[in-house]
């Protein structure tokens, strides 16, 4: 067991635990804060797996921009945590069935996959090399993605424009 593997297992346990906590929080703000931990952990795993640029981007975009955006929206909407059970009683059996199905399929793949036990050798894609690769072979996709982001900006602007109608205050405080 090398230092790398120890770091990986530590990080993965942090990520799994914080994600698990995040998805079960009633308070949205708490959930988002726990998710920030998740994304930090994921960013470090990215670095460990030889993707420093993506690790930086993960921190900037996910942990920074997206989560802050979520926080903004949550603050803006001002909802109170609901007291209803997280998973309605009628939905337990489908959820458990689905999880079992998922885990079965996962195990099947695990034992069938010949590459499963192949150990990863450390390597590092330096940001410069990665950037050159990206703009040499995937420049068209980059352009398409940039266009998609532009469309997303315009779409968000259009959707966010006030419709000129006040929200219904009678059930506005319920989540």
């Amino acid at each position: 067991m090398t230092i790398h593997s120890i770091i990986f297992y530590l990080l993965s346990s942090v990520v799994i635990v914080s994600t698990g906590i995040a998805v079960t929080r009633r308070d949205l703000v708490h959930a988002v804060v726990y998710l920030i931990f998740t994304f930090f952990g994921t960013a470090m795993i990215f670095y460990l797996l030889g993707a420093p640029l993506l690790a930086a981007l993960e921190v900037i975009i996910y942990a920074g921009a997206i989560m802050v955006l979520f926080l903004f929206i949550i603050m803006m909407i001002r909802t109170e945590p609901s007291t209803a059970p997280l998973i309605p009683p009628g939905q337990w059996w489908p959820v458990i069935g689905f999880c079992l199905l998922y885990i079965t399929a996962g195990f099947l793949f695990m034992y069938q996959e010949p590459d499963f036990w192949v150990f990863l050798t450390p390597a590092m894609a330096t940001p410069g090399a990665f950037g050159r690769f990206l703009f040499q072979t995937h420049w068209l996709s980059i352009e398409i993605i940039s266009l998609l982001l532009l469309i997303a900006v315009i779409g968000a602007l259009v959707l966010g424009k006030p419709a000129g109608k006040k929200p219904n205050k009678t059930n506005g405080n319920r989540i």
Partner: peptide, 12 residues
């Protein structure tokens, strides 16, 4: 040597 490839997939 980091971890087996499968462990990353399981984590994901």
């Amino acid at each position: 040597m980091i971890v087996p490839y499968g462990h990353v997939i399981v984590l994901a």
